[in-house]
């Protein structure tokens, strides 16, 4: 599914949110910040920061990463 999305969306990574409680992003990346109230992730060449409460990385694999918690805001930096 991620490959198909990349085909239609170019080189942009696929990010999927369920309300403000869970976010899934595919592909490889890296974590540059990891605190309980904010997590910084490198996704598809972009720096993405998640702010919230009780943030937790539920799954961290080479295919996808799943973060849950109470997400208050999301910001992107190139």
């Amino acid at each position: 599914m991620e490959k198909k999305a990349r085909e239609t969306l170019g080189s942009y990574p696929l990010i999927e949110m369920t309300g403000n409680t869970s976010i899934v992003f595919g592909g490889r990346g890296g974590i540059f910040e990891f605190e309980e109230d904010h997590i910084g992730v490198v996704v598809g060449g972009m720096l993405m920061r998640l702010y919230g409460e009780a943030l937790e990385i539920v799954s961290l694999t080479s295919v996808q990463t799943v973060v849950t918690g109470k997400i208050r805001s999301l910001s992107f930096d190139s």
Binding site: I31, F34, E56, I57, V58, L60, T61, S62
Partner: peptide, 17 residues
């Protein structure tokens, strides 16, 4: 450490600070 786990394909779950 987390990035190294990611690159070495070590699956992690329930990661909490």
């Amino acid at each position: 450490f987390i990035n190294l786990c990611w690159s070495m394909e070590i699956p992690l779950w329930d990661v909490k600070k």
